[in-house]
């Protein structure tokens, strides 16, 4: 917007805008700040604390405490579930990307006879869904329940991301494809050597959205992995046990005290341990998320 600078009303407006934005930013960050401070507090002192923590509650010697982290890192299920989540996230994202990119390449060819019916088929899946229960029945009937595949295959693809990649491929000059074909290049060569390298940003956007979704997902695991198979639990399901069900079975405290005394510290430390990887990574790839929202929004 344009206006004469330096006028008093302009300065007041500026202060309001920057002030409001600073306040909103603080509100967004402070809850997590509080959790970090709790996780670094002395767990036994923490239990009775009632206020917001700007700084950790120190122990008797005035030092920060890493007891909560020591407890949570000595809990084997956390490590196992971390590994599982990495496996699920990487495999599901990669599988989804390969399937979607191949289909997107096919759908952006102009000389394909069944292009239109295929396109309609994928659009139907975008607008009509059977819902939770029928999908749940299908996955169970396929015998995927209580296997790792249940958290990798269902949900790895969606038509929205596929069409996003297709739009990216459509935006490339068609001559690239035609010239290569006239020179005798096969589809696979054109796809892997010409089209894919040029659609990098679109692939990055879909991969990032997919990966965040898989990393944070717990519903699929709670539907398809039952409690008799805790070794298949992803991180979010173990976190649910600790954070939501306050279930600390199997966690050992440092002293003879009941583990319940350490519960709040353990919960705070698991919040931090569970969220930190994404919170460290996302600022570096933030622009791809912005780009993805814009691309997705434009296409409705």
């Amino acid at each position: 917007m344009v206006e004469a600078k330096k006028s008093p009303s302009f300065i007041i407006q500026k202060i309001c805008v920057y002030g409001a934005l600073a306040a909103i930013s603080l509100i967004c960050v402070l809850p997590f700040w509080h959790m970090i401070m709790e996780s670094l507090s002395d767990p036994l002192e923490l239990t009775a604390n009632k206020g917001f923590l700007w700084l950790p509650i120190t122990d008797l010697e005035g030092a920060w405490s890493f007891d909560s982290y020591k407890i949570i890192f000595s809990f084997g299920r956390i490590w196992r579930s971390y590994l599982n989540t990495v496996i699920y996230t990487v495999s599901a994202t990669a599988l989804g990307l390969v399937i979607s990119a191949m289909a997107a390449y096919v759908l952006s060819r102009r000389d394909l006879m069944f292009k239109k019916p295929l396109m309609i088929f994928f659009l139907i899946t975008l607008f009509f869904s059977g819902g939770l229960i029928p999908t749940y029945i299908v996955v169970h009937s396929l015998g995927l329940a209580n296997t790792m595949l249940a958290l990798i295959i269902p949900g790895c693809c969606n038509a929205f991301f596929m069409i996003l990649i297709k739009n990216g491929m459509d935006a490339l000059p068609y001559e690239y494809y035609e010239a290569a074909r006239i020179d005798g290049a096969g589809h696979w060569f054109v796809f892997t050597k010409i089209i894919l390298p040029l659609t990098g940003p679109f692939m990055a956007v879909t991969a990032l959205f997919g990966a965040v979704g898989h990393w944070n997902s717990w519903v699929a695991a709670s539907l398809y992995i039952n409690s008799r198979h805790p070794e298949l639990y992803p991180l979010q399901l173990v976190l649910r046990d600790i954070l939501v069900n306050s279930n600390v079975q199997g966690i050992k405290g440092p002293s003879g005290l009941p583990i319940a005394f350490y519960l709040r510290g353990i919960q705070a430390a698991s919040v931090v341990v569970g969220s930190l990887p994404l919170l460290i990574i996302y600022p570096f790839v933030q622009k791809y998320f912005e780009k993805g929202i814009v691309l997705g929004g434009v296409k409705g």
Partner: peptide, 28 residues
Amino acid sequence: NKLLYVMILPAFVYFMIFSILPLFGLLF
């Protein structure tokens, strides 16, 4: 375009199983 149909097959099968089949599941 033989290869193109092979390339789109995984996506087709995926959505057949996880999107279209549950639609018939609505009969339940």
